[in-house]
Nucleic acid binder design. Structure first.
Lengths: 335, 335
DNA sequence: TTGTACGCGTTATCAA
DNA sequence: TTGATAACGCGTACAA
């Protein structure tokens, strides 16, 4: 590792350490000749300022974290990536911290411990603020309220928790759901099946209630399948085109692998949030609600920076961002 | 934010700051009565040690980074996740830093700048060591040699760069390739098509050469399709079962969407590294080489910690890890 | 234009 | 068993 400090550079140039410090920050009070001298010396000696000391002295780290359990889909990855890009463009360093120990393989130790540890260390001077992507853990709010207690600047993105008061940037689930439904209707769907889980996750439940409300209002028959065991029975006679709505590609494959027979005579259209990879089969068409990751990222970071700057006031803002589009996936290979 | 420091706790207990420091670290030299006193006070006052100061004074951060352009697939995500888990289990904090600004949308500023900035800051005291997941950038080696110059502890995982001397933990591409081929042969394949790109990426080229060597040795006819424009022509007469090998699911869909007609009469089997989502169609069967993320992560972190501990010696170790299995993907829905 | 001296919050080394 | 003090490396108000 590098051991050359500001003192070494200063000594080398026969100037004081403070002069060297100022010279490297291009302080106009330093003679330009001295500036160049110091800069060249620093360069030649391979001087690298110690960012720990810098942050400690300066009282800020210019660092943000994204805290999330793990990356489970490309949509997650894209969001984190956009957050990173936008933060970087504002001269913040951004790091992702993962706390889920259970997702893959056997869990080592208490999975919550890592989460608590990350939240704790965030409050201990390493970072100026955090963007949190919460999941369905029951205990999430207890852990995250540590932030509230310590008045640590943080915001939610993509999802939020009822019991934790802070700002949120998320997709407008109502708009997204209705837009997907409209596309399915245009594709000829006469009856709907809702594959949303019945859990406490605000996003999932919002998708369920939004689609339910909309379909009732439009007088379109539909069936809710909140549990994967439930078999579907047609509400209309004949073989009308069916639309199936669900949050992720996996749920379609899982459900239909078990319960495909009632669907055999029907033309199928899927409406999916998140993403769809590969062929639409067994559907004729899949509509994917493409979330606006770039805007979500921007709004989240902006909300966070607002919190960092004025620490006393903490307005609980909510930004709802509409979908970019509903992308249609058609078969590319004819079999 | 929290402003309560060790001084506050010490004053509150009418002890010296050094005693308070020792008490909180359960130093046996402190009377147990005093320890409890201090710990209770710290708790009541909501004291949180400043980790910046701690690292600065202690000379180490107990932090590791994973540096990568972005997460493009679930396989990447899984690897990072396993690294995080294993590092956490060894009481290191782990953060992921992303440097690619081009992947999604329009690039902001010079994309290389972020990369350089991350590599620089790694050498500036924020972190004890880094695990690097390199990509096909031509300039990668110049940037990463900053680590070498500064004697900063780092290792490669999953892929590596010829010009940058350090340890590597990666999948055994030869074993993986041959294993995939064997599975395709068992599924009846008589002729092979290789969809590997012809670029300078060591992993991709290793897959190409390994499969080429093996197929020649076994006297099995095959065609290399290094460029996506190239059309395939059968080498054998009749309609033998065909195996297609490629690195990722996307390449199959892209290629076959353009050039499907010659394949119409053949039974198809795919062999893919990375992952496969959804139905195997248009193949009857897909074999997926499942990389051992857990072991890759463990080896990478172990290699890194070895580097951190003895800074002078830097043996250039290479760990090659075989696949966990070749998983077969069969149609779950009959159309 | 440059130098002095202190603060940032800990840990570590003395001495008591 | 505890207390005083020197690091850790850098910023900065203040003095010169």
């Amino acid at each position: 590792m590098n051991k050359i400090t500001l003192i070494d550079v200063a000594r080398f140039c026969h100037v004081d350490i403070s002069t060297a410090s100022r010279a490297l920050r291009s302080d106009p009070r330093v003679k330009s000749k001295t500036q160049e001298l110091v800069k060249k010396a620093a360069n030649r000696l391979g001087y690298r300022p110690n960012l720990l000391a810098k942050s400690l002295a300066g009282g800020k780290t210019n660092t943000l974290w994204v805290i999330l359990p793990s990356i489970d889909s490309i949509v997650d990855a894209k969001l984190v990536h956009e957050i990173s890009r936008y933060a970087n463009s504002l001269d913040y360093s951004l790091f992702a911290a993962f706390h889920d120990s259970e997702e893959f393989g056997v869990s080592k130790g208490n999975p919550i411990d890592h989460y608590v540890k990350i939240v704790d260390s965030a409050c201990q001077g390493l970072v100026d603020g955090a963007i949190v992507l919460p999941r369905r853990f029951a205990d999430d709010s207890d852990i995250l309220n540590t932030f509230v207690k310590n008045e640590f600047p943080f915001v939610f993105v993509d999802n939020y928790l009822e019991g934790v008061p802070t700002s949120v940037a998320m997709t407008d689930q109502k708009q997204a759901t209705e837009s997907l439904i409209q596309h399915c209707l245009q594709a000829g769907a006469k009856e709907f099946i809702l594959l949303f889980g019945n859990d406490t996750n605000p996003v999932e439940s919002r998708r369920l209630t939004s689609s339910r409300d909309y379909l009732i209002r439009q007088r379109i028959p539909f069936t809710e399948i909140c549990e994967i065991q439930k078999t579907w029975k047609p509400k209309k006679k004949g073989s009308p085109a069916l639309a199936v709505l669900g949050s992720s590609q996996a749920i379609f494959h899982t459900y239909l692998a078990e319960h495909f027979s009632p669907f055999l005579q029907h033309k199928l259209v899927f409406g999916v949030f998140d993403e769809w990879i590969g062929e639409p089969s067994p559907a004729q068409k899949v509509f994917v609600g493409i979330q606006n990751s770039e805007k979500l990222a921007k709004e989240a970071v902006d909300l966070l920076i607002k919190k960092i700057q004025r620490k006393n006031k903490s307005p609980k803002e909510i930004k709802r961002i509409p979908l970019v589009e509903c992308r249609a996936i058609l078969p590319s290979i004819r079999c």
